[in-house]
């Protein structure tokens, strides 16, 4: 028997199908980490694969990866082997870490690229699915879902639930995981 995972396929939101979720997450194995950078609002994104230039503010261009892993509002840790340190998004005093200001964080994230993804794991977590990326140089990136915050009135007609993490691909698809133990693989080039 043979099988295929089609990166151009789609999967509506589901709470099952863990093998499919893992297979789709593993499409970044072999892709190079270009750089890590924070997006708005304070969301860490890993840019992998091939660099793509896109429009930015004030006539500038902004570089992005052909793959982009977004951490939404989840917690993350990033052991950067080449820099000999671990960065994380949580309370430093609770994690045995020293405080780090945003400017220094951005500087360190910007120099974290170069290694390739050697392995991907998705594992069950009390708040959903956690994701781990192991890199060829010994670096490890992990994103862990956080509990839902108290509900707030939506500013729009249909509040979009904040996922735990997202993986944008070069195939016009993105993997949306969470909140909770749900996931979907959807078109990224049309409004939801």
């Amino acid at each position: 028997m043979y099988g295929v995972v089609d990166f151009r396929g789609t999967q509506p939101a589901t709470t099952g199908g863990y093998p499919g979720l893992l297979a789709l997450a593993r499409q970044v194995v072999g892709e190079r980490l270009l750089f890590a950078r924070r997006g708005y609002p304070d969301e860490l994104r890993l840019h992998l694969g091939t660099a793509v230039q896109g429009p930015g503010p004030k006539g500038r261009t902004v570089a992005r990866g052909s793959y982009v892993l977004g951490t939404a509002a989840s917690d993350w840790t990033f052991k950067v082997a080449r820099l000999g340190l671990t960065l994380d998004s949580g309370d430093p005093s609770a994690r045995g870490a020293a405080p780090l200001d945003e400017a220094r964080l951005d500087e360190l994230l910007g120099s974290a690229g170069g290694a390739t993804v050697a392995g991907v794991e998705v594992d069950a977590h009390p708040f959903g699915y956690a994701l781990s990326l192991a890199f060829s140089d010994g670096s490890v990136f992990r994103v862990v879902p956080t509990p839902e915050e108290a509900a707030r009135p939506a500013d729009g007609p249909d509040p979009a639930p904040v996922p735990d993490w997202e993986l944008f691909t070069p195939y016009g698809r993105y993997l949306r995981v969470g909140p909770g133990p749900t996931w979907a693989y959807l078109p990224s080039d049309r409004p939801e």
């Binding site: 994104r45 993105y174 939801e192």
Partner: peptide, 17 residues
């Protein structure tokens, strides 16, 4: 009415701004 791709690009753009 942004697509997810546009939202991701907008996030990068706003952070750059």
């Amino acid at each position: 009415g942004m697509t997810p791709d546009e939202r991701a690009g907008f996030s990068d753009s706003v952070h750059d701004l």
